[in-house]
Amino acid sequence: MASATKKISVRGLQKGFEGRDVLRGVDLDVDEGRSLVVIGGSGSGKSVFLKCLLGILKPDSGIVEIDGRNIARQTDSDRRYMTNQTGMLFQGAALFDSLTVWENIAFRLIYSENKSRKAARNKALECLTQVGLAPEVGNLQPSALSGGMQKRVSLARAIASEPRILFFDEPTTGLDPIMADVINNLIVDRVKAIGATAISITHDMASARKIADEIAMLYQGRIIWRGKPDEIDKSGNPMVDQFVNGRAEGPIQMTLRRR
């Protein structure tokens, strides 16, 4: 298996909480410069998966290779290797509410890359325009922004230092369809412009089709299907079919019992 072109390679990734398995052996590869979308139901462990890659959660077992280097043990240097080339858009935007919008975007430039505040501010305002917001927005507090604007600012923050790897956790959830499409376009546009490798997570099929070079479906802690966006309608997999068409009846039973 040639791992030379693989940017990210995950093998047998397992993670549980208090005896409850969430990830039960995820295997996934992403080639350099490609955009993979992981779909799956709410609570299926999509966010947990990304957090294991990022080093926010420690996997119980398994291998996470970035550029062929296993970072699953998550020593300080592993984590640094990962974070230094990664940008992440959090599900809830996770903007720093004590800082202004431009300071949020410039956070990494100022506090990690030791850029001057002036240079960082210019770069932040440039990123703000790239996500379609006026420079004046830069001086506002994040709490003054709508949900869609917060997502855009968070996107700007993730791309500000032009990372090699980008993670998006439900970038369109909670937005109206038009704003969702705007965000989708921005993601496609920015990932292409930077040439980054991207893993996005969503349960929004319109978003998945738009962003993805490839789609993988996470179900019961494993990847059960993987293919191109135009193959997903004839995947032949009943679980994928049910998800794509959004039916309550099918092999996937929503577990309403169990807390």
């Binding site: 990022l54 926010i56 640094r80 959090f90 996770a94 509410d97 990494r108 506090y111 990690s112 923050r157």
Partner: peptide, 9 residues
């Protein structure tokens, strides 16, 4: 926000 901070190195 704390998780976000560590992802920003």
């Amino acid at each position: 926000q704390i998780d976000a901070m560590s992802t920003l190195a």
